[in-house]
Every structure is written in C-alpha cells, then in structure tokens.
Amino acid sequence: MWKHITSTFLSLMVVILAVASGVILLAQNRYKAPGPLTQAMCLRVESGTNMRKVSEELAKRGAVSSDTLFRMGANYSDKSHKLKAGSFLVPEGASMADIVDIVTRGGASSCGTEIVYRIGVTRTQIKVRELDPATNKYIDTVAFVPADGETPADYTQAREQGDARYRIALAEGVTTWQIVEALKAADFLNGEIAEMPPEGMLAPDSYEVRQGDMRVSVLERMQAAQQAILDEAWAGRDEDLPIKTKEEALTLASLIEKETGVAEERPQVASVFVNRLRKGIKLQTDPAVIYGITKGQGILGRGLRQSELRRETPYNTYVIEGLPPGPIANPGRAAIEAAVHPDETDYIFFVADGTGGHAFARTLKEHNENVARWRKIEAERGNN
C-alpha cells in the first residue's frame, strides 16, 4: 500500500513540475514576445519612482499586456533595482524584456525634450524641441536668442525637469572667439576657459553634451574632431596643390567657407583660389580683410572702406601675396575637402550673381560683365 501511495505521489509531483515548467516557459515566451504597442511612445520615468509605477503606466498606455508579468520578469532578471530616471523611447512592438532593458540600461534620455544651443555666425539661438515618437522627428516648441534678454518659460521648465538632453550645434564659418564666448554664456556648462583654441581648429558639427559638462572638455572634443577631419583630408589630397602644409589647407578652407554658402560651389571657389595661387595673383577676398579688422570678434556690420582695402595688413589679400597667416574661421568638412580637391577650371574671378551663388569668369572682361550685372541687381534692390 505504501509503495502504491509513494508511486502515486511521485507521479503527481512529476505532473505538477511539468505543469509548472510549462507555465514558466509560457510566461518566459510571453515576456520576450513582441508587445501590443502599435505606435512608438515616449516613457518618462521620474526620479525616485519604482518598477510597479512604471509597469502600471506601461499597462495603462497599452505597451505591455500584463504589468504583473512585467514586474516578475524584471525581478527574475535582477533588473528591478536598476531602474533609471529619464525619458525613453519605447518602439512599436517592444517586448517586455526590451522595455525592461530600455529603462534600466542607463545613459542619456532617448526621447522627450532636447535643448539645442546653436552657435551661428550672426547670433546664438536656443531651441527647445520635443521628439514625436510616431515620426521619430523633433518638433520645435520654442526658439529664442539669449542675447535679447528674455528667457521663455518652456526653456526654464525643460531645465528644471532634469532629464532634458543638450546639444551644441556649431554653424560652419563661426570663429573661435564666437564659439568661446557662446560657451561661456551657456548656463548648462561649467568651468572656465583659460586659453583660446587656435582659429579654424574647432569642427562645425552637432555635439551632444550633458548638463554640467566642463567647457574645456567640450572644446577639446571639437578640436579633436577637426584634427581628425584635417588629417584625413590632407592624407588624401590632390597632387601638385599650391599649398604645402595642413595648416595652409585649413586656411584655404576657411576662405572658401566664408566666400560661399552654396555647398555645390565650394570646389569652384577653391579652384579660383588655387588658380590664383599658382599664377601668383593676389587672392583679393573680402572675408580675409574683414577678419583683419574684427579679429574674428563678431561681424563687421558694414561694407569695407577703400582705405581698408588699401591698407597693408597680414590679412589684406588685396595687398599681400598668397594666403593670409592663418584661418579666418572654422571651416566645415566640405570646405576642407574642397581645399584639397578643387575643381579643375580656368576660373580666376567670381562675384555674387543675385541668387545667393556666384558667377565665375576666366577673363577680366567676363568678370567685369558679371560685376556690371551684379551692380544692376544691387541698384534695383536698393530702389525697392
């Protein structure tokens, strides 16, 4: 009899274990299976919250089919205590396992508010943007110029939330002085800037930073990026260029950058400067003369005077031979590439054509005709 009872008990235990194993397996499969979310969403995890509140919010918004199973999976994978504060992008169809990983992985917020600090040639602007999870595109909520003295409430609120992401965007053609002064005014950065980086050696680009980052470290990143771009471009440069060093290539690139805002024109503008250097013709580029006057500290805000065009200074390319002594701004990658890979043309001149671009010429006669057309356009605009 006891033998029969023991056998029955063991059989029952086997069944129970089999059922339990099956339930666990089903739960694991459900935990790792694609979730019910039909459209990507932004999940904000407040500082000090817990996995229960997060799971309930996910269930409420239709991202998980069971908040209980979500918590059990987080506990089983030993991630419940690793919950991070921030705003996280939860993609369409994300499994519970995926979401647990997203909210416990750490790092910068992947959605929500982004503050863009744009350092431009004429002004510095701040934009507050929100990511639309459905399109994965940012929508501007407010844009303002700090120098105007007004700070919108949206910006203050975004700063106070604590999980906003920060991005510093450098426009092509800004000077080092403009960058340094703008970083000094950036209230989300820390530290002093004791030394001005070399002109031209800060790469125009978009840099993600964290609140409290040191200003010097941001500048070091910009300088390292520009050095890498310059090194790569110089290593692959065209043969027989009339420039002998990377520094000269950077100087030439800065002239190209300041002469045209039309990307397609950069290699043509480069060809004009290269042809002039080869022929020993003065470069005669106004931006270099302006830099000699302003030292890169802001914009001139007026036209050049004849006396300034005649005065001999290191940057007056109407008077000096060859390149100025150094860059006049921070050129972007495309301008640097144009400097080492100029178009092959016979162009010696260029002048504005009234469309934002330039008219190029091989002879002085052609150039004078282009200048006459430009003067006519200027006169017509002045009368309107």
Score class of each variant (00 low, 15 high):
M1S: 12
W2Q: 13
K3Q: 08
H4G: 06
I5C: 09
V14M: 13
I16Y: 15
I16H: 11
A20Y: 05
S21Q: 10
G22N: 10
V23K: 02
L25A: 12
A27N: 06
Q28D: 14
N29C: 07
Q39S: 15
A40F: 10
C42E: 15
R44E: 05
R44H: 15
V45M: 04
V45I: 13
V45G: 03
E46C: 02
G48P: 09
T49L: 00
R52W: 06
V54I: 07
K60F: 11
L69I: 07
L69C: 01
R71F: 11
R71G: 02
M72V: 14
G73H: 01
G73W: 00
N75T: 10
S77K: 12
H81L: 15
F88Q: 08
S95K: 05
V100R: 03
V100G: 01
V100T: 09
R105P: 15
G106A: 07
A108F: 10
C111W: 13
C111Q: 07
E114N: 15
G120R: 01
Q125P: 01
I126N: 04
K127N: 13
E130Q: 12
E130V: 03
P133G: 14
N136M: 12
D140R: 09
V142F: 04
V145I: 13
P146Y: 07
E150G: 00
A153C: 03
D154A: 11
D154M: 10
D154L: 08
Q157R: 11
Q157D: 10
Q161M: 00
Y166Q: 06
Y166P: 13
A171Q: 05
E172P: 12
E172H: 13
V174P: 05
V174L: 00
A182K: 00
L183I: 05
K184E: 03
A185M: 00
F188M: 01
G191W: 03
E192R: 03
E195Q: 05
P197G: 07
P204V: 12
M214K: 13
R215E: 00
V216L: 01
V216M: 01
V216D: 04
S217F: 10
V218Y: 02
R221T: 09
Q223F: 02
Q226T: 04
D231M: 07
D231C: 08
W234G: 06
W234M: 05
L250F: 11
S254R: 10
K258A: 12
E259F: 05
V262Y: 01
E264D: 09
P267L: 04
S271M: 02
V272R: 03
N275P: 04
R278K: 14
G280F: 08
I281E: 06
L283C: 12
T285N: 07
T294L: 02
K295F: 03
L309N: 04
E312R: 15
P314Y: 04
P314A: 09
G322V: 10
I328L: 03
P331D: 07
G332N: 08
R333S: 06
R333V: 04
A338F: 06
A339E: 06
V340H: 03
V351P: 09
G356I: 08
A359R: 12
A361G: 10
V371Y: 04
W374H: 10
